[in-house]
Design a protein around this nucleic acid. Structure first.
Length: 945
RNA sequence: GCCGGAGUGGCGGAAUUGGCAGACGCGCUGGAUUCAAAAUCCAGUGCCCGCAAGGGCGUGUGGGUUCGAGUCCCACCUCUGGUACCA
């Protein structure tokens, strides 16, 4: 093997690591611990994508480097294996999902092992393992057993829930119902996205543009009994604790906007006449503001209580409970048809056409504005959402764009109550006249006793006054909604919940949790997996032996919903710590020893949901004393997307080249000629056929024709998917790893380039030839490698490389690490004598990035053990500096000359030397030196006139 | 619309945070080796003017601060990711 042959050495070292259990993690950390986690993949039938190894290589490098620094490293891998694709496959082929899932996992495992990642494979898990989801079910029972104590701001056992006297007196059933209503896991009728074609209900994130994400089938919204998780109780903590995390500001912002905290006030508008209003007000000033609104009032939430005087109408959502009550006879028909139409509209359709176009209908009723006693008409409109705030608003068209649009549409009065003053880009007079909407801050006008107050002062004052009068209270709202936690699918974790049946086999409404000792609840075997076309879950087709349970003489039916795919990924990082524990989801001491995850790397597509859901579960486990940290993931890095190769495209109409400006997009035909309407075809071009001109590219043959140049997302339909198997076959795993790191910063989006892969392969070939005579028959070290001390120059090169590589690895700046190693190789390739010690250190520096080649060279240098735990090379600071530096000499900021001086040259000396430089003397001869800037070790700048 | 991120040679990208723009790689050009090719090695390579010495211009655009700006400030343009009436 004279030449570098990865096909031979890579499998060899993979076998070595496996047989010697090189990367087995100690149960307890034996030294400083480091927990490095990859977001585990969904094992799709398509196999590994080149996007996967990007993050995996980055973490692998971090881990290999950390081991060489003596740290105890936990670096596991697993599979997020429940999910719809396997079930779809099962429906089509009648293969049990477990069978296809296991096949896919085997394939993923082979591909991951082929890339030489240093995972501790003895800890591998899949969310579909029965022994794994046993504990997913167990954690669900913890959620079921927990209520949120708002006073102490933490989750507590349901047995500690205070039961109000009236409930206590109403008997056991009432108590049970009360408890059920307070649990973190509760049942509710929720509007769900029912997709008749898939025969399943979809999560919001699975619905895109009103169609199913998979298959683009139409989706309807229907109410269904669902399991919900009370994540909103944790909204405040999920928001506040973000601060302590080492995550990018972008991701933190995304999460905090998703949580969407806003502060304002809840205000009650009296429903009735002015006489009733007076007595109601008197009552309220006695009793205060009730936490639950009663039937006498319409309660709204507003972030702008300062604009109460400008509320000229109110709007309730079409689903609001008061719709019927408030609708007068005259309006009945209009209201009914409006609400029915609204119920058919998806969220998407509600917002589709330009948001200017508001729809709505008058109820015929009025409420009374608590600040001035004015009657305010109540409308119904779908721009108000039932699920946010109180589902009702006071509309202030002068200072809210949506209300303004609506008021204009229906000719409702607009009263300005905020004077914008000198605010920029605002037509002051128009605003005050109510002809323009101004949503910003300013000085109150038309606001009775509050006139003249600044917005924020007024907010505080009016909230305080109304609260004292029992008419309003400060309030906080979140965009975050409770988590719809059940799916009507087969391939997910069954809920450990039983529904009590009466003697007729009908559910009584009572539920009970499966005893933890009876877990796991495994999935039944089904005859087939086809949806039965009803919104009920497919587990309803289970054999009776699975479906029905008898305990203490009572009959129960199992819950047939299953958990969503997010469930298994919510806690897998904990199971990796103690993957085979049969007594607990994770041993407490081990949890304390390894948590938190020090580095978590994965795609930005999970920036919100997965990370929010995991954080939520973690906090519940924390409150209940099962984990020791309140956050699971200390540092988070999102790897960027890898796009396909850059493509050059031009258009042709009837065989003639056409510019994009001559074309327009047609719905059916795609691009067509704007003038003639003829269809244009896209022509893919080779790089050699195009030329750079100005900002873009043009045809080399006809420079008037612009060429589109861009990289697209890899997709099957585009045919630009790069298969890692092929890359490994052609270039080797080390080349793939190295290329993915060399492409650019980890977090950036970057296009693939096969010639870039061959570039790094070239580098590895050069590394090989640095050690091995590639023309010899046998593999042996070159005679140039000798047991001699390095020259000063060689030593400086080595120590600078160690310093730079170490520094950049700490920054996770892998592309520049590789550049440094290349410089080292370029230098030593020219050295006839290559000291063995320097070469050994180089192999160690290379090893986290290209581990197979490095192990091979390490063995060749005479070692009989893996280098995985060799100490990381250290550097001598003094040797990273040279004794001389070249200093640029500038005149008026432009470089005119350079001098070489001792690196410790003093400021005065440097200035003297610079002034005597021939070229500087020449340029300053008949000029006056106004100023001299001397930065020792950097530059000298003469400002002359 | 709103909120992030990013615009640097033919291409991917560097630049110790205000101090030599273009490290490293790809590509390209020339040379050595070879009967020839592959492979390898050496040299060159931002653009423009010039035989050269040298000069001018250059980090999306326009302005500003500074002795000095890819880096800081203001305005704008383009691409990209997220989001969608949250009162």
């Amino acid at each position: 093997m004279p030449r570098y042959n990865p096909a031979e050495i890579e499998p060899k070292w993979q076998r070595y690591w496996e047989t010697n259990r090189t990367f087995r993690t100690p149960t307890h950390p034996a030294s400083e611990k480091l927990y490095v986690l990859d977001m585990f993949p969904y094992p799709s039938g398509a196999g590994l994508h080149v996007g996967h190894p990007e993050g995996y290589t980055a973490t692998d490098i971090v881990c290999r480097y950390a081991r060489m620094q003596g740290k105890s490293v936990l670096h596991p891998m697993g599979f997020d294996a429940f999910g719809l694709p396997a079930e779809e496959h099962a429906i089509k082929t009648n293969t049990p999902p477990r069978v296809s899932t296991e096949k896919n996992i085997a394939e993923f495992t082979r591909q991951l092992k082929m890339l030489g990642f240093s995972y501790d494979w003895e800890r591998v898990l899949a969310t579909t393992d029965v022994e794994y989801f046993r504990w997913t079910q167990w954690i669900f029972l913890v959620l079921f057993d927990t209520w949120y104590d708002t006073e102490s701001q933490r989750g507590r056992p349901i047995s500690e829930l205070p039961i109000p006297d009236n409930i206590q007196n109403a008997g056991d059933q009432a108590i049970a119902r009360y408890r059920d209503s307070k649990r973190l896991a509760y049942q509710d009728d929720a509007l769900v996205n029912w997709c008749p074609a898939l025969g399943t209900v979809l999560a919001n994130e699975e619905v895109i543009d009103g169609k199913s994400e998979r298959g683009a089938h139409p989706v309807q919204r229907i109410p269904l009994r669902q399991w919900m998780l009370r994540i909103t109780s944790y909204a405040e903590r999920l928001l506040n604790d973000l601060e302590s995390l080492d995550w990018s500001p972008g991701i933190k912002k995304l999460q905090s906007e998703w949580i969407g905290r806003s502060t304002g006030a809840e205000v009650d508008f009296y429903l009735g006449d002015t006489i009733g209003f007076a007595s109601w007000k008197a009552e309220r000033s006695e009793a205060g503001f009730p936490s639950q609104a009663d039937d006498q009032v319409l309660r709204v939430y507003t972030t702008r209580p300062d604009t109460l005087f400008g509320a000229t109408y109110m709007v309730i959502a079409p689903e609001h409970a008061f719709v019927k009550r408030l609708t007068t006879k005259a309006q009945l028909q209009a209201v009914e048809s409006y609400c029915e139409a609204a119920s058919y509209k998806s969220d998407r359709e509600r917002t589709e056409d330009d948001s200017q176009k508001k729809t709505g209908v008058f109820t015929g009723s009025y409420a009374i504005n608590p600040v001035n006693g004015a009657p305010v008409p109540i409308w119904i409109a779908d721009y108000v959402l039932a699920s946010y705030g109180t589902g009702a608003i006071m509309a202030v068209p002068a200072h809210d764009q949506r209300d303004f649009d609506f008021a204009q549409q229906f000719d409702l009065p607009i009263v300005a109550v905020v004077d914008p003053g000198e605010a920029k880009d605002i037509d002051h007079d128009q605003v005050v006249a109510g002809a323009r909407c101004y949503p910003g801050l300013g000085i109150a006008i038309n606001s009775g006793e509050y006139c003249g107050l600044e917005t924020n002062a007024l907010k505080a004052a009016i909230t305080r006054d109304l609260h004292a009068a029992g008419l309003a209270a400060g309030a906080v709202n979140y965009k975050l909604r409770d988590w719809l936690f059940s799916r009507q699918r087969f391939w997910g974790e069954p809920f450990p919940i039983l529904h009590e049946l009466d003697s007729n086999g009908k559910p009584t409404g009572a539920i009970r949790a499966v005893e933890p000792s009876d877990l796991p609840i495994n999935l039944p075997e089904l005859e087939d997996y086809k949806p039965h076309g009803r919104p009920e879950p497919p587990l309803g087709k289970s054999p009776d032996s699975w479906l029905y349970v008898e305990i203490d003489g009572k009959r129960y039916r199992r819950e047939t919903n299953t958990m969503p795919q997010w469930a298994g990924s919510c806690w897998y990082y904990l199971r990796f710590i103690d993957p085979t524990n049969a007594e607990a989801f994770c041993d407490r001491d081990l949890e304390r020893a390894w948590m938190p995850v020090d580095l978590y790397v994965g795609g930005a597509e999970h920036a919100v949901l997965h990370l929010l859901y995991s954080r939520f579960w973690h906090k519940v486990l924390y409150d209940r004393g099962y984990v020791s940290t309140c956050e699971p993931f200390q540092k988070l890095v999102n790897q960027g997307m890898i796009l396909g190769e850059v493509e050059y495209t031009a258009f042709q109409v009837q065989g003639r080249w056409a510019n994009l400006s001559e074309l327009r997009k047609d719905e059916q035909l795609g691009w067509v000629c704007a003038a003639s309407g003829q269809q244009a075809c896209q022509v893919a071009l080779q790089e050699s056929a195009v030329k750079k001109k100005g900002d873009g590219f043009v045809l080399a043959a006809d420079e008037t024709i612009k060429v589109d140049s861009r990289a697209y997302k890899m997709s099957k339909s585009r045919g630009n998917v790069v298969n890692p198997d092929e890359v490994v076959r052609e270039y080797g795993a080390d080349s793939l790893r190295l290329y993915e790191m060399f492409m650019g910063p980890l977090e950036a989006t970057k296009p693939w380039s096969m010639s870039g892969v061959s570039g790094v392969r070239n580098f590895l070939d050069r590394v090989w030839r640095l050690f091995v005579d590639f023309q010899a028959e046998e593999v042996h070290l070159l005679p140039a490698i000798q047991d001699v001390a390095p020259t000063l120059e060689q030593d400086q090169m080595l120590h600078r490389t160690i310093a730079a590589v170490t520094h950049d690895l700490n920054q996770m700046s892998f592309n520049t690490v590789i550049a440094r190693l290349m410089e080292f190789v370029n230098f030593f390739n020219k050295q006839d004598v290559r000291p063995r010690s320097a070469m050994s250190d180089f192999v160690l520096l290379l090893s986290p990035l290209a581990p197979h080649l490095s192990e091979e060279l390490w063995a060749l240098l005479g070692h009989d053990q893996s280098l995985a735990y060799e100490p990381w090379p250290t550097f001598d600071e003094a040797l990273t500096k040279s004794s001389k530096v070249e200093i640029p000499l500038q005149v008026n900021g432009k470089i005119r000359s350079k001098i070489t001086v001792a690196s410790n040259c003093s400021k005065e000396e440097l200035e003297k030397l610079a002034k005597s430089d021939e070229r500087i003397v020449e340029l300053t001869a008949d000029k006056q030196i106004m100023k001299t800037i001397v930065v020792p070790g950097r530059l000298v700048n003469f400002v002359i006139k």
